[in-house]
Simulated assay, not measured.
Amino acid sequence: MASSSVSTDRAFAPVSSKEFLPPVDLGDVLITDLLEICNSERADKVMAGERIRFALVPLVKFWAGRTAAAVTRQSCEAYGKWRSRADGTVRRELGVLRASINHAHAEGRLSRKLVIHLPARPEPKERWLSKNEAARLLIAARQAPRARSYLPLFILIGLHTGARKSSITALRWDQIDLVAGLIDWQPQGRKRTKKRRPRIRIPRKLLGHLRRARLRAPSATYVIHENGSPIFDPKKSFAAACDLAGLSDVSPHVLRHTRATWGMQAGAKTWELSGFLGMTEQTLVEIYGHHHPDFQREAAELY
Rank of each mutant, 00 (worst) to 15 (best):
K195W: 05
R201C: 12
K205N: 09
Q186A: 08
L207E: 07
R214N: 14
A260R: 02
F276N: 03
R211F: 05
G275H: 02
W271A: 15
F232W: 13
G275S: 10
L273N: 00
W262Q: 06
I200H: 04
Y222W: 15
R196V: 14
E272L: 02
L215P: 03
L156Y: 10
G158H: 11
R212D: 13
G189K: 14
L178S: 10
G158W: 04
G267I: 02
S248M: 12
P230M: 09
I183R: 06
S274Q: 05
W185T: 05
R216M: 14
S167M: 09
A217E: 08
W262K: 01
L215C: 08
R190P: 01
W271P: 06
I157M: 14
A239S: 11
L178E: 11
R199N: 14
P198W: 12
E272Q: 06
T221L: 12
G246L: 12
D249S: 11
G162V: 00
R172G: 07
L159Q: 06
A245F: 12
T261C: 00
G228C: 12
A163P: 05
I224Y: 05
K235P: 04
A240D: 15
L215E: 14
D174Y: 11
G181C: 11
L247S: 07
R164S: 07
G158E: 06
G162Q: 03
R199F: 11
A220N: 13
K269F: 08
S248G: 08
A163I: 05
A245T: 14
V250P: 01
A180T: 10
R164A: 03
R192N: 07
R201D: 15
I157T: 12
R212F: 09
R212H: 13
S166G: 13
A240F: 02
G208I: 10
G275R: 02
R259Y: 03
K269R: 15
R190I: 09
R212V: 12
V223C: 02
T258C: 04
L206Q: 00
P252C: 11
L273R: 00
M264G: 01
G246N: 09
A268W: 09
G181N: 05
T261L: 00
Q188N: 13
V250S: 02
